[in-house]
């Protein structure tokens, strides 16, 4: 069995409130899987079900072939986890906290803790309660990776990290992938998922909308684009180009939306004097629009 994470009809209701519904998913060994969705979509709920913090209303989940509920301790032995909001013991130092966690795992190689802490420039000598959000996040990163787990569940792992540390974190994830570790990374930031992941699952209102490769997602995504010309341009030249929609031209300024390749638009624009081109990173909402058109998906429960 090479599906490291497998969900089968996984459903969780909190009373009447929907957490996630009918999730079916397989993540293959060695993949970096991006779990993309807006806040409150059910990303954290999914990960907590996989770690047996929550019990499913129906459906099942397996991690590394182990039933996520019945064999949870074995699952957790082989998994590293960064919670969305890591709450660590405030009165312990980073060093003490990691020593405690290591003992509960039956011992961890301290050289790997030291090297991770050094890479992240992480102060292990101060009580965790005195650390900033970012520095606490670093300890959570060390904690997740220190025992060299086969699978990593990372719930919005870069929140709180400054850009430099995000880069370092990204390279830690890439090294994990190179070493054959499987990564399940939740995020609401498309660029983060694009940079790190091979495959993306999109979740919205508790339901898995789509699972596809990052390349396919990018091709599908609607990008909005502005072009500033040297002089006025005729709108007719741009309407009806392949993948181009919502064209509005005001004097020498063109605004439109593009799906897939930019080539037809750029070729058309090149006939005039181009002063500036600005493309906007598609937001999650824009990606959803690409899937749904203008329609909102039907929510089962808010």
């Amino acid at each position: 069995m090479d599906a490291v994470v497998r969900l089968q009809g996984l459903t969780k209701y909190y009373g009447k409130h929907l957490g996630v519904r009918d999730l079916d998913l397989e993540v293959q060994r060695g993949a970096v899987f991006g779990y993309l969705g807006p806040n409150g979509a059910g990303k954290t709920t999914t990960i907590r079900l996989l770690l047996d913090f929550l019990r499913p209303t129906s459906g099942r989940a397996w991690v590394l072939g182990h039933d996520a509920q019945k064999e949870s301790p074995e699952v957790r032995r082989r998994v590293g986890y960064i919670p969305g909001e890591p709450a660590l013991y405030k009165n312990l130092t980073g060093q003490d906290f990691l020593a405690y966690a290591a003992s509960l795992r039956g011992g961890v190689d301290w050289s790997s803790i030291r090297s991770l802490a050094q890479r992240l420039d992480c102060d292990l000598s101060r009580p965790i309660g005195t650390l900033s959000r970012g520095n606490r996040q670093k300890i959570a990163v060390v904690h997740a990776f220190m025992h060299n787990p086969e699978v990593l569940f990372l719930d919005e792992p870069t929140s709180g990290l400054d850009p430099l540390m995000q880069q370092e974190f990204n390279s830690i994830v890439r090294e994990a992938r190179a070493a054959g570790q499987t990564v399940f990374l939740s995020s609401h930031i498309l660029s983060e998922v694009e940079e790190l992941c091979d495959q993306v699952g999109i979740i919205r209102s508790g339901q898995l909308v789509k699972v596809e490769s990052v390349a396919a997602l990018k091709a599908r995504a609607l990008r909005s684009l502005d072009i500033e010309f040297g002089g006025p341009v005729p709108q007719g030249e741009f309407v009806g180009l392949k993948g181009v929609s919502d064209v509005t031209v005001t004097d020498s300024h063109l605004h439109c939306k593009v799906t897939g390749a930019l080539d037809p638009l750029v070729k058309a624009a090149a006939r005039y004097q181009v002063v500036n081109i600005v493309t906007h990173q598609p937001s999650l909402e824009e990606i959803f629009l690409a899937f749904y058109g203008k329609e909102e998906p039907k929510d089962v429960a808010a």
């Binding site: 301790p73 957790r76 890591p86």
Partner: peptide
């Protein structure tokens, strides 16, 4: 959440 992410039953 951190405590039970360790392999403790």
């Amino acid at each position: 959440e951190m405590l039970l992410s360790e392999p403790v039953t």
